[in-house]
Design a protein around this nucleic acid. Structure first.
Lengths: 202, 202
DNA sequence: CCTACCGATCGGTAGG
DNA sequence: CCTACCGATCGGTAGG
């Protein structure tokens, strides 16, 4: 019964953590990772500030937990659905299209969560920057592998290494995200869609 | 003599403002426009907090003044030197190269000041966002005009409107800036340099 | 998980 | 331009 109650308490804590994290993510979506405060998060969830604090241990742990949540969401909405497409140029196109759809949907009002946080922490050091940099690297790696596959099989014409193609695509996607959310102009996303589509045709 | 003293006081204020602004810009370069505080700026300049406050009227006015300063710097270091090149594909290339040099120099440790602020304020509204959006628009317009000139004179092969070429270039530049400062990897800037050069060859 | 508190800091103001 | 102050808010802690 002691073990039972310990287990129940732990899972209560986890469920509670999950609930707080959902609210935290939606607050961070508006204000950014840094302007989110424990007090406002507590008010928004009906908990005490120290209750929220205790669930995460520090503000930085809370920020890292939000990043993990955003990463799962990105995997579910951008990466996973693209795995239906065949590796190579098809999957490369799917990843780009899904990315732009995800930006257009604006689940994060600040655009792609990772792009906005990257710009925020780019000039600094610390755990948050490192986590974002790792995630970004994995995304570019995913693009690179599919570019490599596409070029090896001559699925498209491109005069350069797969790394270059992947970097061109990823920078255009990030740049389009920022330009779109700055101007609120859907035309920007559509122009970049066109550009990427025509670039990925044989 | 009344007029004389009024003029001297005003120019004293302007000189003082200019001096404060220089320190403010260097603080904002590290911490961003929003994490800059009046108290830290006052400490860094040896003035009282209310003295600094009085020179600008509000924190937002201070932020806008920093934007203006960053804009002048961008004009001096990126735009002006590119005007030596002939309008068209040559000037287009010069603008991109100067932009990447400016990012590489890291006068703003947060990369291109406008890109990082754009990501910071993209999801919001207000005077700061509007100012940044205007500046960004003028930059893309400058690229577009030179793309138009280049395409009209068949200085390069490109299957699309000048607006599309300008958008491709500007998004790649912004994306490269963010990726570079996130990873601190000069290779990223060099790959994008190569990519843009080969794109702007006939 | 709570109340109650800490010192630090924020933007801004009063009054000179 | 200063001193001296305002209320609000910050991340975090003590103690339960």
């Amino acid at each position: 019964m002691g073990a039972d109650s310990a287990k129940r308490m732990r899972s209560d804590g986890e469920r509670s953590r999950e609930r707080i994290l959902e609210t935290a993510a939606s607050l961070a979506a508006v204000d950014g990772l840094y302007r989110l405060s424990l007090a406002r998060l507590a008010r928004a969830t009906g908990m005490s500030k120290s209750g929220v604090f205790g669930l995460f241990g520090s503000k930085e742990e809370l920020q890292l937990a939000i990043i993990d949540r955003a990463r799962s969401e990105f995997m579910n909405e951008v990466v996973e659905p693209s795995l239906i497409a065949r590796a190579g140029v098809e999957r490369l196109g799917a990843l780009c299209e899904r990315f732009l759809d995800y930006v257009e949907r604006r689940e994060w009002p600040s655009g792609c969560f990772f792009a906005s946080v990257a710009a925020e922490v780019g000039g600094r050091t610390g755990a948050i920057r490192d986590r974002i940099a790792d995630d970004q690297k994995q995304w570019v790696w995913l693009l690179t592998e599919n570019a490599r596959h596409a070029l090896a099989n001559r699925e498209l014409e491109f005069d350069g290494e797969p790394e270059l193609l992947a970097l061109e695509l990823s920078t255009m996607l990030t740049g389009a995200d920022i330009a779109y959310l700055l101007h609120g102009d859907l035309g920007i996303l559509n122009l970049i869609r066109m550009s990427i589509r025509s670039r990925l045709m044989v």
